[in-house]
Design a protein around this nucleic acid. Structure first.
Lengths: 342, 342
DNA sequence: GAAAAAAACACAATCTATAGTATTATATTA
DNA sequence: TAATATAATACTATAGATTGTGTTTTTTTC
């Protein structure tokens, strides 16, 4: 007795194609995989039947048979807020577009929790801004799964990392302010528990030193990147006796807050204060004064990570672990001007 | 002679677990799938071995065997710009978070080209803002693949659609302006080739009519949603003799542009002109005057689409095709005020 | 304690492909 | 034309799970 099917609507398999085209399954498989040893007549016939039956090979069967997977998983935290949304989407764009071009499937794990990662059947994995989830990273490395960490330089593990040049970016920014004649340059830091903020602060210090400007603690405002702390930093800075003529702010979000406070206090930007931010968040374009800032190559960072993953996913590759730093770029707009003499 | 393996590092399979636990493969499978007919002793032993071997069942083999797939594919165009990035990421957040909770795999197809969709092995598909790709949609429907279209009401096809209440949102917005005493309310439309813009325009017209205000063509500015056209609309509007005291703008992006132009022309918002936008893009928060706007429930829209897909993916479901409209909401901030008497 | 019922477990088919080897058909060479 | 090389094609094992059916073991009942 013939087996009764669970589902009446069977999916069309390679077998159906083979039967209809009166060839073996192997031949159909060869046609699908463009393997040359197929006669012209049969190839044509098979292609015709595939078309007719609208046959699509099962990716699950293919991957089970080949043992290869072309799934790239992107693990990303799920934050709110426009500043993050720009950042996240740019990254996703870089990654997604290249995956698309390379015919890699992009699996998105948007999560705050410890993502449930089924490591089997996983071609490669990209961690974006995942901190404090070290065990997961260790698991991945343990299983020899191709892996890239974005924007989080993990020094002590043998893992691929791609990040932005925070130090260099800060240096260029501060250098620019000094080149405009500013000597009293303040800095509003981000959360110094993060690499980015620390490195930006370092860059700031380097350039002051290089220009023989003594670092003045009263010009340093340490924050946690929050709006509130940015605001009070801005108030202190703007009301200060002998205040700075310029400020380098560790994020655009905070820089916009500073501009907001300046407006409220009746100060003019850039006449009374020159400002450089960091991130190149497009929100900086919509205020009354367009913000000069340091651009992070987010899309490129995404692309580079996919490139690397792709190479690592190739069987028998000899790729070695790399720690890459991508250059950032100063985008000059309207929020800075030369120091007023006097 | 034993067969030589291509890859020396074999993945750990259910067979390895079975052998080590001294039970049959079936029993291991039963343990994995929490099927009750397994003795306590064996279950414990199997779980122990699974733990020890760090065994993860192959999703490909599982899906091949069951014929079920829990992969949801999100097809989304790849636009640039901050306004889009907010919109896109909110949608992705809604979709991604729920997929995560429901243990669905989210495959992201970010593309401008006609996405290559391998329909086999595809559990469900969500089209976001895909227009002019009707053939693909037809293919999906043909193959009986669970499908939801976001923010694009397709009237003539029997397909699930989820969209925002543009008409209602516009009505509430215009109603609010009228309730503040405004009678001369202008409208800057978006691209009237799109449903959203048309419907918002409709809403505007309804409310004028309802309040016995004759529609005045000189107060209608038709644009293509672009910055440039928004700008010239704003200039005309603001320099007009007997100009409007309020304006309803079909997008926040354009509304911000109007505020920008007003600032340049020395007009005060909201004293000289009350403005309501549409979208609730957070960029509206960072200018000197926070924009009053209509919020679209983007996250909810994403979530609803996943809910629906999830139900449709259940075998033997009786879900019927739905066309859902989600309510939008007026967010009152600082860009409107009662009409100055006189 | 034997028979019947219930619980555990194992065997083998199945899902849909790929790929190595074997076989057949065709073309080339002597 | 026979012998050999080559191009096409088919056969079959394999990938790693699930699942229906059959068998063994344990428990219950009289």
């Amino acid at each position: 007795m013939s087996r009764i099917r669970k589902t009446p609507s069977k999916t069309i398999s390679i077998e159906d194609v083979a039967r209809k085209a009166r060839v073996s399954i192997t031949t159909v498989s060869r046609v699908i995989n463009k393997i040359p040893t197929v006669g012209e007549k049969n190839r044509a016939k098979v292609l015709e039947v595939i078309e007719e039956l609208k046959f699509k090979p099962s990716i699950f069967a293919q991957r089970l048979a080949t043992g290869k997977s072309n799934v790239v998983t992107l693990v990303m935290p799920q934050y709110e807020g426009i500043f993050y949304s720009f950042y996240a989407l740019e990254l996703i764009r870089g990654i997604g577009t290249l995956c698309d071009a390379l015919k890699l499937d992009l699996l998105l794990h948007l999560t705050n929790r410890q993502a449930f990662l089924n490591l089997s059947g996983l071609g490669g994995i990209i961690f974006a801004d995942i901190i404090g989830n070290r065990q997961q990273l260790l698991d991945v490395l343990d299983n020899n799964i191709p892996c890239v960490v974005i924007n989080n330089f993990i020094e002590d593990l043998n893992v691929n990392c791609i990040a932005v040049d925070n130090t260099g970016g800060a240096e260029v920014a501060v250098n620019y302010l000094i080149s405009l004649g500013h000597r009293k340059v303040a800095h509003i830091t981000g959360d110094l528990a993060t690499q980015a903020a620390t490195q930006r602060f370092e860059g700031y210090k380097h350039i002051l030193e290089k220009n023989n400007i003594t670092l003045d603690e009263k010009y340093i405002f340490r924050t946690d990147y929050s709006r509130g702390q940015a605001r009070s930093a801005a108030e202190n800075l703007l009301k200060m006796q002998d205040g700075p003529s310029a400020v380098f702010v560790s994020s655009d979000a905070m820089a916009l807050e500073v501009m907001s406070v300046a407006r409220e206090l009746g100060k003019k930007i850039p006449a009374d204060l020159s400002i450089v931010g960091f991130d190149d968040n497009p929100s900086g374009l919509y205020g009354p004064v367009a913000l000069t800032t340091v651009r992070q190559p987010l899309i490129k960072m995404g692309e580079e990570s996919v490139k690397k993953i792709n190479l690592l996913m190739r069987p028998g590759n000899n790729e070695k672990i790399e720690k890459i730093i991508l250059p950032s770029e100063l985008i000059i707009r309207e929020s800075c001007q030369p120091l007023n003499p006097g």
